[in-house]
Amino acid sequence: MDKGRLEAFSDGVLAIIITIMVLELKAPVSASWQSLSKLWPTVLGYTLSYAYIAIYWSNHYKLIKQAKKISWKINWANISWLFFTSFIPFTTAWVTQTNFQPVPTLVYIFVFWITAIAYHLLMMAILPSKSLGEAFKMVFVKDKRAVWSLTFYTIGLFTALYWPLVTYLIIAVIAVYWIWPSHEIN
């Protein structure tokens, strides 16, 4: 498969995901600041989820550049990552419509956790290595952000039902952590 085809498909799916999320933003019915302020959960959820899509899109571009060719393994790893990413609009809508209640929060962070695992499996499929062990070492040992992100997502899974606010702080910190430039894997 041509790299351009995989990039175009991935870009299209991510664009649709953002479109679905933005369609959840409903304008207030009245022209007052009070009615606008009632939308804070939706705007906050959208902003956080949009940041994640933007981070993935940016990193995906850099990652695909490193592939010499698109193998069957890379193609299916990419499709799996896109599958889990496609749940972000659903979980974003659920948490914002329920004002960040514990169960939707758990599902929300679970989607981020499983999407991160799928993305790191895609990294392992793409980055040059002679063995699975070497690929694992390259992704999870060299790139400390992968280890820290998955560690904090796991903590967030445990805090979601009892301290949802802590879970959202974890999600936000991970987003800022990934926005910050890294020179480990470029």
Rank of each mutant, 00 (worst) to 15 (best):
F140D: 00
A51W: 04
M1S: 12
P28I: 07
V103S: 05
D143N: 11
N59H: 11
A172Q: 03
K130W: 01
T91N: 10
S182M: 05
L106C: 09
I55R: 13
K142S: 12
M1Y: 10
A118Y: 03
V95M: 06
K137D: 15
V103E: 07
I17Q: 00
S71D: 03
A172T: 15
L25K: 03
D143P: 02
T42Y: 15
L150H: 15
Y61F: 14
S58K: 11
I70K: 00
V166Y: 07
S35F: 05
L23E: 10
V107D: 04
L63N: 07
T85F: 08
V103K: 11
I20W: 03
L25D: 07
S182I: 01
I174V: 08
E24C: 01
I171S: 00
F83W: 13
E7Q: 13
V176F: 15
W81E: 08
W40G: 05
V13K: 06
W163E: 09
I55W: 12
T105R: 09
H120G: 08
T115F: 02
V141Y: 09
K73R: 14
W81F: 15
I74Q: 11
S182A: 12
L39Q: 05
A172I: 09
P181E: 09
S35P: 13
K62Q: 14
A31Q: 13
M124Q: 08
I74F: 10
L63M: 13
A67R: 00
Y61P: 00
T154G: 07
Y46H: 01
F152T: 12
A125Q: 04
K65F: 09
Y56S: 01
V107C: 02
G156E: 02
